[in-house]
Design a protein around this nucleic acid. Structure first.
Lengths: 252, 252
DNA sequence: CGCGGCATTGATCCCGGTCAAAGGTCGTGG
DNA sequence: CCACGACCTTTGACCGGGATCAATGCCGCG
């Protein structure tokens, strides 16, 4: 579902943009972020990269600020959110390790970004990053692919916010987090424990609900035997199948 | 706001991926879709492109179908929407001329696409399109840029759906349509008439509301002297400034 | 003229928001 | 190690915006 097709890069060898003396099978992964780039690009990227760490609650940048750097999240969890004049906030997504924090091709940040726990990030000056990007199709394609996945997730979120009742939003959220934290495990595994890196207020701002409604949904799932809540941010999924049934509107 | 920075392609001339005998200042626009590509790519694209027209109400593809073709909308308006098992639908965006209809890098369509009026589109076989894409950074960057804008709009929609009351959603919608149909005119022009290419049901599915709520909002704006409604899908914006005031949650 | 589809308007209901209070959790300092 | 306090979470009571149900109006077309 989140898969991305691979551009046929083998073909490139015979293409005039890649001279024969420069085969592009030297494409490799850059850093831990899942970016693919040529060996040359990796070197160039290393030269301009900076590692940073963020403390819990620290803001990396604000919505509408002019973009100075492109960031990648190496470790931790962040939130990307937008504010309304009356102070209401909406989290557009939770950013996890390997994610691009910002789109390279825009002039201003589309949202504010804040660390939920302590985070480690990679930072690149935008212009220099984009120069490397413009000359390395494999890197460009890799960043493009990550953004395609982000767009698909945004579209799912639009469906959730526009057409799902509160209970479904919360169960969807739990299953989404479970999936992210355990990409390998079968989805029907019982007793899976997940750690919520964010507070109830953040879950509410992500799902377009209030803290109270989120809390009531958690309590209902606990009463119904679908989850345990040993601590507020520790959730044991006792019955993932039934939880999944809560997460989609069924035929009327 | 929807601006996209230009990758410094001048720089490419000296880069090894573009041999000196092949300067890349032959980059030109392909078709009416606002795509930039090298002359060579334009030729290749022309070879594999097909023009098609769609009748009003015609479905181009369904959500989850495997992608066969990449489409660009040349003329008309379409809707991209997702369905829930119980039949509820959410329109993720309205597609207008110049837009990419699908992301090239995914395996399955993320939504269904339907023509609202008669449309004319360009179609490319996905694999062959992606081969050209992979070898033309200027084209890749151009498609990437369009998708960046789409992502930003999706994020705005997330904010709207998550945190705005009905009246704000509708006034936001009217101003958005006005902006799209008259990109040049000053936003304070009075008496601007816009044509809604979609029915109330589509507006409702886009804004996460019901038909009735959308209709009531229109009626309220008419009562308050903000708009005229000579026909159900013809809207005259009488007071764009006051309409704008309706469209954002104000300080409490 | 009459039919069918879309839009508007009205009456009522209910989900989730708001307001308020109590209970938990955790860090800090005695 | 315990006690305090700040903050977060949970729970309850009530309210309101928008959904639902229903009827009427409007317009185009055969």
């Amino acid at each position: 579902m989140d898969m991305v097709t691979s551009i046929n890069t083998e073909h490139s060898r015979t293409h005039r943009y890649l001279p024969p003396d420069r085969p592009n099978n030297d494409i490799r992964q850059f850093g831990v972020s899942g970016l693919m780039a040529t060996l040359k690009s990796c070197t160039l990227l290393s030269d301009i990269a900076n590692s940073r760490t963020l403390a819990a609650g620290e803001t990396l940048f604000w919505e509408d600020d002019p973009i100075q750097h492109i960031y990648f999240l190496v470790d931790g969890t962040m939130k990307a959110y937008k504010l309304l004049p009356n102070g209401r906030s909406q989290i557009t997504r939770f950013i996890t390790s390997g994610d691009i924090i910002t789109s390279p091709l825009t002039n201003n940040y589309a949202y504010s970004a804040e660390a939920l726990g302590s985070c480690s990030i990679l930072q690149f000056p935008q212009k220099r990053f984009n120069n490397i990007l413009a000359n390395d199709p494999s890197l460009l394609k890799s960043v493009f692919g990550k953004q395609s996945i982000e767009l698909q997730q945004a579209q799912k979120q639009i469906l959730l916010l526009g057409r799902m009742p509160a209970i479904e939003r919360v169960s969807n959220f739990l299953l989404e987090i479970a999936q992210r934290q355990n990409p390998k495990t079968t989805r029907f595994e019982a007793g899976l424990v997940i750690t919520l890196p964010m507070a109830r207020a953040d879950i509410a701002d992500y799902l377009g609900l209030t803290i109270e409604t989120v809390s009531r949904a958690f309590s209902k799932f606990r009463r119904d035997g679908l989850i345990d809540l040993p601590r507020p941010n520790l959730v044991r999924l006792r019955d993932q199948t039934r939880l999944r049934e809560q997460s989609a509107s069924h035929a009327s």
